[in-house]
Simulated assay, not measured.
Amino acid sequence: MTIRSAAPFDEWQEQPGGEVLLDFETTDPWYTLVRLPDGSFHFRVHSVCDYWISADTSQVTLAMHRSAATGMDAVMTTGTLLSLLLFLRGSSVFHGSAVDVDGRAFAFIGHSGQGKTTMATLFCAEGASVITDDVLVIDDLATAPSARRGSRELRLRTGIEEVAARVTGASTRTSADERLVLAPEATMSDAVPLAAIVIPAPSRDGSPLLFRKLRPMDATLALMTFPRLMGWRTEAARRDLLAAASAIASRVPVVVARVPWGPPFEDELANKLSDFLSQAD
């Protein structure tokens, strides 16, 4: 894949006409993907940039809005654009992070701010190595699901510096979107067998740590809630999400973790989760 940068622009133009494949907004629009009549794509990350993508997804032109912060081109390209291209090429992509614990992958999925990266960082503080953050690709769904190696950096929100401080020897920096970026030890494996998927449920009311394993049907519905990109409009994309979620849920434990949210944060999470999984089996 080749990405070229075009000159930044000042005025937003109306998106070109075509089939809307993806459109997501909350209080404001986030991103919209349009397939143009010639088979190419126009992908807008609202208030940040436009991407023009060739029909075979091998060529991308990026144009940033002049108001976007310096460095947001890298943030958007390595997260949002990468997720889109992987999905268009047939990969199963979830909004999650994953770590390697003695050759087994533990993945954490959820919406923004749900604690995925914090959980991954807590595991790294206990000796795990990073597999990926933010963009979780799961391969070999029909046989033995595995987590594909991705970004080695963990992007943490402000206010949880205590968690980052637990990871010894990790370098840090601040990203363009003002996240604390932590680079702990990374896995050397291209893919790590998936031992479990954890959905964090942060608890701020003093409730104790509690794990709950979901039944396959409930796990399928839960996994469908957390694709990396929300708002798919086509039946084909929704069928793909359902098929991936069902295949994973039938082969991998999916656990909801009610975690007391600090600081201070829970200790020995990896061991406690492993003990729970061994008892649940």
Results as ranks from 00 to 15, higher is better:
D281T: 11
L273Q: 01
W261K: 01
P208T: 05
L269E: 01
A183S: 15
A245M: 00
V93M: 09
A125C: 01
G90S: 01
I138T: 03
V99N: 06
G90H: 00
F87G: 06
L62H: 08
A244S: 03
L180M: 15
G206E: 00
G113P: 01
I197G: 11
L86C: 08
A107W: 06
R251Q: 03
A243E: 15
S171H: 10
D267L: 15
A176F: 02
L277A: 00
P200K: 05
G79N: 15
A142G: 02
E153D: 14
E19P: 07
P264L: 00
A165P: 07
S83L: 03
R149Y: 09
G115D: 06
F265T: 04
W261A: 02
W232N: 02
H46A: 07
L86S: 14
Y31V: 06
V45F: 12
Y31P: 05
R173G: 07
S250F: 01
D281I: 06
D134M: 05
F87R: 12
L22R: 03
T77W: 06
A280E: 15
A183Y: 11
L62D: 06
S97H: 07
R166D: 08
R233Y: 06
I160P: 13
E25D: 10
Q13P: 07
D205L: 14
R35T: 06
A164F: 11
Q13R: 15
S40Q: 01
G115H: 07
